[in-house]
Design a protein around this nucleic acid. Structure first.
Lengths: 206, 206, 206, 206
DNA sequence: TATGAATGAGTCTTCATTCAT
DNA sequence: GATGAATGAAGACTCATTCAT
């Protein structure tokens, strides 16, 4: 193996290891995943893995950190930037399928759900730092639309969950069942319908 | 321990073991769960456990079988029996919170999501026998409502997913995050809102 | 392997394991000793060893407990029972060679000295419970002899160390060098000389 | 780190490494000591350590060699130079406490006792080159005193052991227990008493 | 020369499974 | 039938040693 002398080499190796860990944890679960396999998937030896992460748990934490924050940022950006609710929802309808199909979020969430029991602290942190803030962002978006007279809404927090729900379903589906699908779900249509439903359902009706 | 002479004793023990397995798999994950702990939770010895199940994997399969079918039946009943879509959706709004809060479905789904990678066959079976049939039932319900002129609908299969989505979200939430909630989610309101949204969104609009 | 059903079987197995551990720790040192070798020396498997001791350290502690107390008892008995200093010293001269040649004390002390760094707590305990009490016993013996006018003595505590010194030397020798001796040390003569010296040195002189 | 160009630089580094090794072996034992820690304690890198010693065992041998000979020389000098037994014993009484408190001999002996089982050859060598010659020196001293009519003695070899015994006891004590002492042993008094005892015990008595 | 990244053999410990009682 | 003692395969982690830079 080549040696990582520079700082950037090390960073690249770290990233490779974290990515390999995500895949192994995703495919086998935290307990069943073998450190040697993770290292091998990154084309490194077991010993080298331990130069970068002091334990399996350390690697797991690094994994969450590495992939959790970007998700949060995306979500907050979408909901904050939007000038109107309609525009924000359209953005969701456009980007959600991309994220579900091409990002690591489904794998990440699957790992988090599957191995949450081993790391209550991580789950709590993830919930507070990512989920709660994500829900709060959507919630605030709805509240602003309500205040602007765009929509009629009673409980923004619960409504936010209804907005999010198809994303969670699709992410889980992607992570757990997608590989057994004969034909993939048409996520673009699904989210266009979802956004359409929301607009209809929340608009003023006389 | 007493010996299990009658058939009903045996069945009761089997059930206790399966229930214990669900709890242990839920709390620790399949790989990390210990056969001895499962047996102990059912007040039986490790050796006795092996009289009923030939391996950990066998126990896992039994577990899925035991808890999967009832859920399916419930869902099919609701969607088939319903005289109208409105009645069926109201039934969902009423029963979903009960199921989420008091049945084993959240634990079951959490276990399935977390540990199924080790058993691709089980995932495929569960998906085909439970999920697909459940979705098909909802889908058919929607189609009937459409044909009856109750609602306007383009793609019943995708719409069925939108109907189901908040259930999945809530089930996951219950299994993974609920115990960290200061105040529990108001599921009754959530599902009433959801059903309300659906009715509005799917109704004919001019 | 046979199974240990009765309590006495278990006790016998425990003892075999502790004896095997003493030998392995003695021959290789705590860190270098392999749990599998210890088990093998007791004709048991590695797994069985862990049924009796939860860890290597636990085994080490058990080892000290098992062999430390008897030594203390012997020492206190000798020094307390003795009606006169002369009789007590003679007893030492008689028994010390036996102990050095045929008991496990040399191995025990060698292990304790060699691995003390890993277990500061154990060393402290051994020192307080065995060594200090042993020295105190000898010290008290000397003090009584002094009070009875048998001997002249300034500092019983330091004198006790001089009484003990050849035992320590011989024990270390036995544990470390004896197996390289062409002809074994004549311990009987050595201790007879030692006791003789003490009697002369401590007796009143005008 | 600077490069070691001159011979004296090299020698200094070697010495630093050997001293570091003694400390690490003393504190952790041969097997548990880490080459990296030894190098670090000498302010050198692991790789550099291997420029001076080809293996851990090589370092251990060098350690024994480095510290064994000086001790021997001291002992032989004392016992040979002495004009009379009395003078030689007084010299012992004076120097022994210094050696025990301030030299590396206690650490060396502790390491030798604790880890030599892995190196039978080293034990044999040390025993022959250091211990036996030391004992022989004392033995010869006693013999000369006997021949000169100074003392009465039967077995100079065994008596030599009795002369040495408190040194061994004190060295072990220093290495193993001293750091747990609330008040340090008064070694000066101890050895003065010991020498005094010897003089009395060995002097002609009618 | 000096360094420290890389490696993999080696060891403790766990636990599914077997089977004597 | 029930039990739990026995086993050994498996996996996390360490660290002596090598060697590219």
């Amino acid at each position: 193996m080549q040696r990582a002398r520079s700082e950037s080499d090390k960073t690249a190796r770290r990233r490779r290891l974290v990515a390999a860990a995500l895949d192994e944890f995703y495919e086998r679960g935290f307990t069943a995943a073998r450190m040697e396999d993770i290292a091998g998937r990154a084309d490194l030896s077991k010993g080298t893995l331990y130069l970068y992460f002091s334990s399996k748990e350390d690697l797991f934490r690094a994994l969450i950190d590495e992939y959790a924050l970007p998700n949060l940022n995306t979500l907050e950006m979408i909901s904050r930037t939007g000038p109107s609710l309609g525009a924000a929802l359209s953005a969701i309808a456009t980007f959600a399928p991309q994220v579900i199909r091409h990002s690591n979020l489904p794998k990440l969430l699957k790992v988090l759900i599957g191995d949450s029991q081993n790391f209550p602290g991580i789950v709590r942190t993830y919930r507070e730092e990512v989920i709660d803030r994500g829900l709060a962002a959507v919630s605030a978006l709805l509240q602003r639309a309500h205040d602007a007279g765009e929509i009629e809404i009673d409980d923004p927090a619960l409504t936010a969950r209804l907005v999010i729900a198809p994303m969670v379903l699709s992410i889980i589906w992607q992570a757990v069942f997608a590989h057994t699908d004969k034909t993939p779900i048409d996520l673009d249509t699904l989210f266009r319908m979802h956004v359409d439903h929301l607009k209809r359902a929340l608009s003023y009706q006389e």
